[in-house]
Design a protein around this nucleic acid. Structure first.
Lengths: 204, 204
DNA sequence: GCAAATTAATGATTTATTCAAG
DNA sequence: CTTGAATAAATCATTAATTTGC
């Protein structure tokens, strides 16, 4: 999928399918350990690094939210339009059909993700090394929007929040971790990561 | 500065002074290697981790921008107010003083950081192990706002951008790096990082 | 003076936006 | 046009300043 000298990762079909399944099953912000495991597993299907997994979930979540937002906006707009039309109608035919008026209360009926209906067979993910915490809440389908409104709740709390150490560098530390050649996966026991040697000087 | 059981890092006075000096000297988004070096050096003055350094620069930069933005907004608001007053005056006394009118062109005279005037002696940072790339452009004082308008330019380009691998996890990998006990600093040669052992299972 | 109570700073996390490869 | 990668902005949460009543 990604040519040898390619600068950015592109997931193989299998990798993508698995990632999507994991996402569907409730994983949104995988912990470092989860990322490690997913990476290790997915490296069976092609070159991949931890950061790829991380970014994938980050982006997928964000763009899902965005999609939902757009949809809601469009819906709202449509509704307002209709409302406006109704009002105009109302103004014009006030005397005639004032008992056919439509309530302008917002009808919030279409929340939630359109996921969870087309799950495929990913039972191999029940292999001991890949039982993720998040997966226990499979097929709960509340949207991220709700998350925001309710503060931090639901699935997030299922995952060990405190252990996750977040921030924005250190990928170089991870790079040697994933075996780019031999598909390691479950067969090979996980080992301690190798590290880049720190240079004492900076180049130039 | 930070009590033993404290959950978050608080910099010692010395650490803060050094960080600010580095910032002043032009460093904004230190690379992983730079962060390592800074961390190692600062660990001489107290407990500190790479992520602390990273966050510090992130926050400092952001809040600098924010400060500048606020200042400009206030200025602009003031100017608009004055302008409005002038217009009212103009309306009232149009015939009388139309040759005393003040131009409403924006006078952009107060850009730039208020930095660089009170530099102290941090010459020890010229020790071989701490010659940062960013420091060559000391005392250039263009604001971040300009950065935004011009796209990515100036100092950023001085730093090796490509080598920096960014993202949001992996701190656990760094944790063992900093020697929390013995103040290491320049005396001890940098060594390869230790790593946490990856567990095959997830707890629970 | 000195804690308890408020407020201001700021460390840490998450979310949104942007860049750019394909 | 999609989406991986990177950065910036917004937000949360804890610590330090400070105010306040005693």
């Amino acid at each position: 999928m990604s040519p040898p000298g390619s600068s950015r990762w592109s997931p193989t079909t299998e990798q993508l399918m698995i990632l999507e399944e994991l996402y569907r099953s409730g994983i949104r912000t995988p912990s470092a350990v989860q990322i490690q495991q997913i990476t290790t597993h997915l490296s069976f299907y092609g070159r991949i690094e931890g950061k790829n997994v991380f970014y994938w979930f980050q982006n997928h979540k964000a763009r899902d939210r965005q999609k939902l937002r757009r949809k809601l906006n469009k819906q709202l707009q449509l509704q307002q339009q209709q409302q406006q039309q109704q009002q105009q109608l109302h103004v014009h035919h006030c005397q005639l059909n004032h008992n056919n008026m439509i309530s302008n209360h917002f009808v919030g009926s279409t929340f939630g993700y359109p996921f969870g209906s087309n799950a495929q067979d990913f039972s191999f993910f029940n292999s001991p090394s890949l039982l993720f915490e998040g997966s226990v809440s499979a097929n709960t389908s509340e949207g991220e929007i709700n998350c925001k409104w309710n503060g931090y709740n639901n699935q997030q709390s299922l995952m060990e929040k405190k252990d996750i150490a977040f921030s924005n560098y250190g990928w170089t530390l991870m790079d040697n971790n994933v075996n780019h050649e031999a598909p390691s996966c479950c067969t090979k026991p996980l080992k301690t990561l190798d590290l880049f040697p720190l240079t004492t000087r900076i180049k130039d």
